[in-house]
Amino acid sequence: MNRIEKTFRNNKKKVFIAYVVCGDPDISTTIKIMNILVNSGVDLIELGVPFTDPIADGPVIQKSIERALKKNINLNDVFNVCTKFRKKNKITPLVLMGYLNPIENIGYKKFSKTAAQSGVDGVLVVDSPPEESSVLSSVLQENNICNIHLASPTTNKSRLEAIVKASKGYLYYVSLKGITGSKISNIKSVERSIDMIKKINKNDLPVVVGFGIKDKQTAKKISQISDGVIIGSSFVKIIEENLHNKHRMVDNINKYAKKIKTSIVNK
């Protein structure tokens, strides 16, 4: 069983997931932020892999990616960050989130093998739906890495069945039609969708919700209706606002994560 499955099984509360872009503002601060996130109650970290053309991301994460790219952060840096983090932390699952081309460039086999060696537990490739990712999925699986897929408000029932079947670790439900950093408008419809997924989902794949969750109230409501809550843009925004004061950056991330954590309900 890999760390993702263990976390969803053993956690007392619903799972709290944080996303930050690797290398923004720099590698050593990213590792510091990851450790602080864990200390303040984050159960799983999604680490963004920078890519020049992040078509699913809003301005906040776009800018963060641009800052990381200015520092020439590449996949090897991302693997190094994971390795360093993993030396001290053997429990918190790490998921790499990004776009397909850097992975195509290094090759699926080398990518999967190095990721496994660096302590990566899951991979979420935004622009690689199940239709296009059977080869990547099988290579990842050989290395005991979960290929995580997205479902969205536009996903119909027959696609949901295929997506659930292709997913390992958890299903990432995108709460809204839009890009990262938008705002959830309709929690009721999120709830209806999750009910539908749960009915289809016979092997109890956890369903977590991301996009548009910024405050305690929303985090609480989402944690009540799903298996976990993902917050990305809000953390990245704190980084953006404190680029000249890394101490305050880490401190504010700590405070914000703790605040959200208190709103996440028990299982």
Binding site: I55, A56, L100, V126, D127, S128, P129, E131, E132, H149, L150, A151, S152, P153, T154, T155, N156, R159, I163, V174, K177, G178
Partner: peptide, 11 residues
């Protein structure tokens, strides 16, 4: 192929 995020698969 269709290398897009899930939301665009439907349209």
């Amino acid at each position: 192929g269709m290398f897009v995020s899930e939301t665009l698969m439907y349209p």
